[in-house]
Amino acid sequence: LCIRDRVGDVRQAGLDKVPLAELHVPYGRPWGDNGMVLVLRTGGGPEGLTPALREVVRRLDSDVPVHRALTMEQVIEQSLGMRRLVLWLLGGFAVVALVLSSAGLYGVISYLVSQQTREIGIRMALGARSADVLWLVMGHGALLAGAGIGLGLAGALALARVLESQLYGVTAHDPLTFGGVAALLGAVALLACWLPARRATRVDPLLAIRSD
């Protein structure tokens, strides 16, 4: 057996798998496969060439069936189908978690504001401005959000290797991804804090002081 040429690596097992060692042999040899994969490069849209390709193959050998005529984009889509489904499910769970965490943070800050109504009224009666009350409530919310985001990032870094097998073209510790998610969570958390903080600035000092 004489090996004349070497060809480039072919990722048969998947885009994220290391190319395996392969040997190309002439079609029809006893040790070869009975099937054949034909790849064509076109200058235009490949979809309209399928009928012409089938006709050419039929003229060469009418006993050779042609099946699974796909574009390269369709081949890649099929190879990534299950992985994209998993990532879509994870993304959906992440959105649900974001909504629940925002609702929980909003509830906690609202409860704190209701418990500190008398204190807020006294502060405003002594000359505190609405902006001071706003920053006071937002500070409590930012502290809780910062602690939650810090713990979440630590947990994500520890469990990142679990998702590493589902990623391609990006590392499990991509700083842009972690930074973007942290910024998004921080923005949502501040918005959830701003609503009860804005309500706290409207507290009537006299009613707050007289309340039990």
Results as ranks from 00 to 15, higher is better:
54 R>S: 08
113 V>H: 03
43 G>H: 07
42 T>G: 00
118 R>M: 00
62 S>G: 12
208 A>V: 07
192 A>W: 08
17 K>F: 10
27 Y>Q: 04
22 E>D: 12
32 G>K: 02
77 E>P: 04
199 R>A: 13
102 S>K: 01
50 T>D: 13
212 D>T: 03
160 A>H: 08
204 D>T: 02
48 G>K: 12
33 D>L: 14
203 V>Y: 03
122 I>Q: 00
165 S>Y: 05
54 R>Y: 04
112 L>T: 12
105 L>T: 12
96 V>T: 12
63 D>H: 05
52 A>V: 11
126 L>Y: 02
72 M>N: 07
135 W>S: 03
100 L>M: 13
136 L>Q: 15
206 L>H: 03
123 R>C: 04
148 G>C: 02
28 G>A: 06
101 S>G: 10
120 I>L: 07
7 V>C: 04
142 A>N: 07
143 L>C: 09
125 A>F: 09
11 R>L: 04
17 K>E: 15
76 I>Y: 12
68 R>F: 12
141 G>A: 09
79 S>K: 08
72 M>C: 05
123 R>F: 11
98 L>N: 01
65 P>I: 05
122 I>R: 01
115 Q>K: 14
209 I>R: 09
32 G>W: 07
18 V>A: 15
85 L>I: 06
4 R>K: 10
208 A>S: 09
49 L>H: 15
210 R>V: 05
148 G>F: 02
119 E>Q: 12
3 I>C: 10
195 L>T: 02
157 L>V: 10
55 E>L: 10
136 L>V: 07
124 M>K: 15
148 G>H: 01
41 R>W: 10
